[in-house]
Design a protein around this nucleic acid. Structure first.
Lengths: 226, 226
DNA sequence: CCGGGGCAAAGTGTATACGAAGAACAATCT
DNA sequence: AGATTGTTCTTCGTATACACTTTGCCCCGG
């Protein structure tokens, strides 16, 4: 896309609305704002120390991304992912990440693979140290990196959005993803390195299936229903 | 120019920002605003007969949806789908619609299938009448209906967003989709009726491949670069 | 004690104005 | 010419105002 243009020109200035959006997203994902909670504009404006306008703009985008629901004349509430939508999410994500794995396998440079291996190694270390927070971070980083390597901006942005929601569900469902997923990650990176699209896709599917099962388990009755 | 756009807003009593967003989307898809065209807030506000606030909120969502690109401190321009992103879109859409077809096959009621057949029949008629505009409408309706039957809101909304972009590319690339796609549609609906997920998926893929090829052909050098 | 009517508070939706800062472009100076 | 300096256009954010809806509460009558 026009990313090159965007990079060239005044890129480093982050509009307030974007900062608010980022803060809002993480607040929701981290559970600072709980599903069903009402988000009045004034309150958010005060929380973030800005006026109503940036907040409103951030809210619209958050709505488009599925983090909040906006009821006309009644304002925004944090969305409530039901267990039904969780499995829906995973079915879609499975397909998208499988595709990403295939494309990544077909396009990865040796540098790309090296970067993945670094993440893998760091993940192994963090797992050894029992640093679950860092493990989760690296897990995200790995998946996001693969998406990026796939070189398909649409795929990347859609899958990223879904991924954020998955994280959200995880946090709500208490536990972080179990560390055993790193074995699957290694399989996946190996497959990508091999350049074999079919194999990469299979590896991604296997991994996602396991992740899905774990998520579903965690999520069962995890959050405040409604 | 400002008049016809204003008329599209009509007398509905939705929030203005939603009307503006809808009008903006269709204006972009219909080619009233061309790729690369600069969209200043004042201009849009005047075109739609509203103040700048609803316009700004609509623009943020339009950006999230990929219809415009917002450059910090420089404002919004209509996005320019390059032929690269077109094929990227189709690769993703292929997977999603294949999934939708599978789910639809697994879940479709006889009423669902009947509804699809009605669309099919209307499409056949419209094709006979050479009513290309109506054919395109029915084509959309069919795909959207299948998405809906799939019963997966995530899949549905993501694929719908992608579909809008495909339509956009089509309009830009001049011609509507060739009428021969109806034969593929019939295959697809038959497969869905059969309840055979694999078969439905294959039918969807075949259809999408053909559509993709046609789109790619139309798009080649179709629009004004940037 | 309870249900409903009505009223006030809260909050959204929209408009408007204004100042600050960035970007683009023209004019000016060396 | 090339660099520098204004000038202008716009976005970005703030603030304010106000209509209109929704909500919640109080009070009243049963």
């Amino acid at each position: 896309m026009a990313e090159d243009l965007r990079d060239k020109l005044g890129a480093q200035h982050l509009p307030l609305r974007d900062q608010v959006l980022a803060a809002l997203r993480t607040a929701i994902i981290d559970g600072d704002y709980l599903p069903g909670e009402r988000l009045t504009e004034d309150r958010l404006a005060e929380d973030f120390g800005v006026s109503r306008n940036p907040v409103r703009e951030a809210l619209r985008v958050a709505e488009a991304e599925g983090f909040v629901v906006i009821l006309p004349r009644r304002g925004a509430v944090v969305a409530s992912p039901s267990s039904g939508t969780i499995s829906d999410m995973f079915v879609v994500r499975e397909r998208l990440e499988a595709l990403a794995a295939r494309l990544a396998a077909e396009r990865a440079t040796t540098a790309d693979v090296a970067a993945l291996r670094v993440l893998l190694e760091q993940g192994r270390e963090a797992t050894e140290r029992q640093d679950l927070r860092r493990v989760a971070e690296l897990n995200s980083a790995l998946h996001l990196r693969i998406l990026q390597i796939s070189g398909n901006p649409w795929l990347s942005s859609i899958a990223k959005a879904l991924y954020l929601h998955v994280q959200w569900v995880f946090r709500l469902g208490a536990a972080e993803r179990a560390p055993h997923s790193w074995a699957e990650h290694i399989q996946l990176v190996d497959a990508i390195e091999s350049g074999d699209g079919d194999r990469a896709e299979r590896a991604a599917l296997a991994h996602l299936d396991a992740a899905s099962a774990a998520a579903y388990e965690n999520a069962e009755g995890g959050y405040g229903a409604r």
